[in-house]
């Protein structure tokens, strides 16, 4: 589904991604862990097409298509979703009308029927149950004044509305209380299917107990230093990252 080859990218002339290789197939769940500032969010934003980042080399194919040929909104409609680490607030734009416009853009692109406000109302009421969100959040301005956890809940609601092929969830778990973590983890699991894939960016193994990955990658200094099964997450929690860095340095010297 997604194939990243030797991807390098920089921001304001500073290289952040220094050669990323990653292959994600349909049905797979991948987790990326790594120290602060290692480039995890950058990877997500580069895939989503954030205009501040400059891709300086490498290749990314999404379902065989060169991702960099597509504008960010076209990438989204093609099925790439990014759940943001820090979702932005948009005063004055109601959450419901935002969700409906996003839904209809995707529907239009897929050749499905668009929903009018009444139809969408029925549709969204099913979706908010999935993430246990209270109705009043639909009428509020998009993320405005939402608590950190409420914003994350809203991200997953958007994911549920758009049903992306590939969802990149950047620190979904940060700022969530224990119950919310379980609810949203379950929601993400229910959205995962054999023809979809997940890329979970996190610092904590806890979320990976609910959303179980087949692959865990350690990203540090703009490179993937180690990839293994889900047991790696627990090992990282126990031992930290230093040993991975040392191992990689030794490997590099060899």
């Amino acid at each position: 589904m997604l194939s990243i080859k030797n991807l390098t990218a920089s921001i304001n002339g500073t290289p952040v991604l220094k050669g990323i290789d990653l292959q994600i197939n349909a049905g797979e769940v991948h987790a990326i862990m790594g120290p602060n500032g290692s480039g995890k969010s950058t990877l997500g934003k580069v895939l989503a097409g954030h205009p501040s980042y400059e891709v300086t080399g490498g290749e990314v194919l999404f379902e065989g298509q060169n991702l960099f040929d597509l504008e960010p909104d076209a990438r989204a409609r093609a099925g790439i979703f990014m759940g943001f680490q820090h979702p932005i607030e948009v005063p004055g734009v109601s959450n419901a009308s935002f969700l409906r416009l996003a839904y209809n853009k995707k529907a239009e692109a897929d050749g499905r029927d668009e929903l009018d406000p009444l139809e969408f109302d029925d549709f969204i009421h099913e979706k908010i149950k999935l993430v246990a969100m209270r109705e009043e959040f639909l009428d509020r301005s998009l993320n405005e004044g939402f608590s950190g956890g409420e914003k994350k809940r809203n991200e997953i609601l958007q994911m549920a509305v758009l049903e992306p092929k590939l969802a990149i969830l950047d620190e979904l778990d940060s700022g969530l209380d224990i119950d919310a973590l379980r609810v949203l983890g379950d929601a993400v699991n229910r959205l995962q299917r054999a023809d979809r894939a997940l890329l979970i960016i996190t610092h904590f193994p806890r979320i990976l107990e609910t959303i179980q990955p087949q692959f865990v990658h350690v990203l540090s200094g703009g490179r993937i230093l180690k990839s293994a099964g889900k047991e790696l997450a627990l090992e990282l929690e126990e031992r930290g990252y230093d040993w991975v860095l040392e191992e990689a340095a030794a490997g590099g010297a060899r």
Binding site: P72, D73, M82, P87, V93, K105
Partner: peptide, 17 residues
């Protein structure tokens, strides 16, 4: 970027905001 990431083209995003 947030709007675009949800599939909404920039001009419609501006108009909505």
């Amino acid at each position: 970027f947030y709007f675009q990431q949800r599939g909404i083209p920039a001009e419609e995003a501006i108009s909505m905001i």
